[in-house]
């Protein structure tokens, strides 16, 4: 199995060093390199790599800012020279990061993690997909940054999206960070077999419904697996019943 990889770092020598270190791993296929965030965004959308090595401190947008612009994130291994802020963000998450200069053993461990995750990740490459008509899949990774906390979450693990002002609160596990995207933009990219718009404010994951009961005036009340309650508006109730009977 090859892991299609993109290297992102603003320093030529840092990329050279990464290439050198990665030459020890035959399954790593380096597609290309990018030297800043906008270059990287172009190349990620073009190549749809499985994995990126991402420098955090870059001119223009930094690594985190770059990730928040992507609809879907590849697997990410962060690489940083010294950044207290970044390391703090990782503490709450199961993300991997490497410190420069990178130790080969540490790199091996990071790649082993990617390999592990990659078994479920092998997907056909969609080279023609532009940002507009691009659809997320159930195993797509979404990067969410809320303040100092960062999350990579698999789409199928999210059980509820809820609009909050101009953004979306995303519920998964025990977390509910704020995602800087709008609900309307999101619904167009979500796979319709998995997500359903329950009302103006909420989108639910259909696999996460524990209980359905009739409520007032033709509305329905759902209980999710985590105990949260969601109401299906009258307008949406018909379509909801249709969807479930299928």
């Amino acid at each position: 199995m090859t892991i299609r990889t993109l290297l992102i770092d603003d320093e030529d020598l840092a990329r050279l060093e990464m290439r050198h270190l990665l030459s020890a791993f035959p399954e790593i296929h380096i597609l290309d390199e990018a030297s800043d965030a906008s270059d990287a965004l172009d190349k990620i959308r073009r190549y749809r790599p499985d994995l990126i090595f991402l420098d955090i401190n870059m001119p223009g947008k930094n690594g985190f800012e770059m990730l928040t612009e992507l609809e879907e994130s590849p697997h990410v291994v962060f690489v940083t020279a010294y950044d207290e802020f970044a390391v703090r963000a990782f503490e709450t998450n199961a993300l991997d990061y490497l410190l420069k200069p990178v130790r080969p053993e540490r790199l091996e461990k990071a790649i082993a993690t990617v390999r592990e995750a990659g078994r479920e990740l092998a997907t056909p490459v969609s080279t023609s997909a532009s940002a507009q008509n691009y659809m997320l899949r159930r195993d797509s990774l979404v990067f969410i940054k809320d303040g100092e906390k960062c999350f990579f979450v698999r789409l199928s693990d999210i059980f509820l999206f809820e609009s909050e002002d101009n953004y979306v609160r995303v519920y998964f596990g025990t977390e509910k960070p704020l995602h800087r995207k709008s609900l309307n933009m999101l619904i167009e990219k979500l796979p319709p077999e998995l997500f359903f718009r329950a009302n103006r404010q909420q989108i639910i994951n259909l696999e996460n419904i524990k209980n359905i009961e009739p409520f007032f005036n033709g509305t329905l009340r759902l209980t999710l697996h985590n105990g949260m309650r969601v109401e299906i508006s009258v307008r949406r109730a018909g379509e909801f019943k249709e969807r479930l009977s299928l």
């Binding site: 320093e11 020598l13 060093e17 050198h20 020279a81 010294y82 420069k100 200069p101 990178v102």
Partner: peptide
């Protein structure tokens, strides 16, 4: 300045083989 220091060390490491 740790940021400078570690980046410089990383550059040196890259140069050792190139």
């Amino acid at each position: 300045n740790p940021h400078f220091l570690f980046n410089a060390l990383n550059s040196v490491k890259a140069l050792t083989h190139s």
